[in-house]
Nucleic acid binder design. Sequence first.
RNA 1: CUACAAGCCCGAUCCAUCGCACCCAUGCUGUAAUGGUAGGGGUGAGGAAAGUCCGGACAGUAUAGAGCAACCUACCGGUUAAGCGCCGGCUUCUUACAACGGUAAGAAAGAGAAAGUGCCACAGAAAAUAACUAUCUCAAUUCGUUGAGAAAAAGGUGAAAAUGUGAGGUAAGAGCUCACGGCUACAAAUGGUAACAUAGGUAGCGGGUAAACCUUGGGUACUGUAAUGCCAUGUAUAGGAUCGUUUGAGGGCUGCUCGCUCAAGAUCCAGGGUAGGCAGCAAGAUCGGCAUAGUAAUGUGCCGGCCAGAUAAAUGAUGGAUUUGAAACAGAAUCCGGCUUACGAGGUUUGUAGUUUU
RNA 2: GGUCUUGUAGUUCAAUGGAUAGAAUAGAAGUUUCCUAAACUUUAGAUCCCAGUUCGAUCCUGGGCGAGACCA
Length: 138
Amino acid sequence: MPAGKNSYARNEKLKSRKALEQLFSKGKTFLVFPVKVFYTTQNLQLNPIENGVHAGVGVSSRNFKKAVQRNTIKRLLREVYRTQKHDLHLSAQNNSLQLQVFFLYIGKEMPTHNTMQEAMKNTLEKLCEKLEKSIIKN
RNA sequence: CUACAAGCCCGAUCCAUCGCACCCAUGCUGUAAUGGUAGGGGUGAGGAAAGUCCGGACAGUAUAGAGCAACCUACCGGUUAAGCGCCGGCUUCUUACAACGGUAAGAAAGAGAAAGUGCCACAGAAAAUAACUAUCUCAAUUCGUUGAGAAAAAGGUGAAAAUGUGAGGUAAGAGCUCACGGCUACAAAUGGUAACAUAGGUAGCGGGUAAACCUUGGGUACUGUAAUGCCAUGUAUAGGAUCGUUUGAGGGCUGCUCGCUCAAGAUCCAGGGUAGGCAGCAAGAUCGGCAUAGUAAUGUGCCGGCCAGAUAAAUGAUGGAUUUGAAACAGAAUCCGGCUUACGAGGUUUGUAGUUUU
RNA sequence: GGUCUUGUAGUUCAAUGGAUAGAAUAGAAGUUUCCUAAACUUUAGAUCCCAGUUCGAUCCUGGGCGAGACCA
């Protein structure tokens, strides 16, 4: 993957409904306020061409009743993820993992771009740490 | 020119970088096949996309039929695919002006209370049958009243009090009678497509409430694109209980009863599997302009355009400029016609009021 | 996306169209007690909002706002 490319294309998205259900029922979670992260890992390296990281994004409709607000939050999350995802991809590749992640916004107030960027930075750092720890354990 | 009210129009624009969905064609590369990758072009959310309050299109299931129940609707005509929408009219009410029956603006869930039942707190004699107080006549009397009869007028209340005013009449009174009004029903006349209006006739006088039950007229099959059809993948034609195969279980997607019809499996418990793709799904009661019929809603004709289409679900972020403050309400999920609600800065039309000038 | 239900004191619930809107509990003050609890007395507190029907709406009707449930 060429460095510096900030795309968030279709094959990087977390798509199938089945995978999502597995993720929510069996996946590991941690919380870096205001973002909650669900993730699962597999040791599949049969397809080296294919991308190893799939990510999804969501907001609860309890805290935000209006569709406009939910849309803007999801857009912000995607935007912030695609600009800062490179470290995560690198660590996943180094450890030869297939990774599914879901970012759920939990806060009750509308975020701005700056706060969101900080939050995503922190969560991604924590996620990388966790990945490396799990590798060492294995 | 300013303020207010109502209606209509619009729903910020431009540049740079990064990024998303769909469509189109191209290069490189790979497979048995679907592909992978690179750069390019085009298109990409609203006036309400919202609420889901009405009405349809479309689809599936059902439909010999009858009754009850349930629900919707209610002045007249037009319009439309249809409507509890819209347009025009009628009637009533309210407000203002005006004074002798008008004018203007606004509103109306605007059939029936004279088919029946219920309700009308407090106050008041009484809330609709009557009774009570008071009134009048006759008789009795211990002169305080008592009994019989007449009549339904008076009685301070109340949201509402038995058709209003005047005259006659009577022992006292009473639509008891008469005059002028008010309202209701009936049949006919004139005008109007009709609601209705106009001036009379006959009979009558019974308060309000139907957004209380209800009556009358008209109407309603049900379910919704997560409908529905097809393809692929996969498992279990396994197990248990109850009922049943012409002595008929069960079904016929709003309830009940009857009837009709299909009919050999049905229901429950426990367990196993799938949850992917294609169609539906984007050219239409379409949009824009012009002409034309009509008071208008709306219709007709001609010319031109193609204008989102996903399935964890696409329009964004950052920086800068303009405006007026780095805009308000707000995000398509089958599609249309309305209604309702939310909202920003202006523009424009009409009406009312005020000020200044001529 | 569709189909429904429901809003009353801080909380849980009542109410025939008649109003001073009730009960329990929680709150405040007081009595009692050496102090607290319990008990008793007193007290403040509410019909989601806007219209309409009615003489009069918590109640009936329409619209809005909020809360909740169901449908593969």
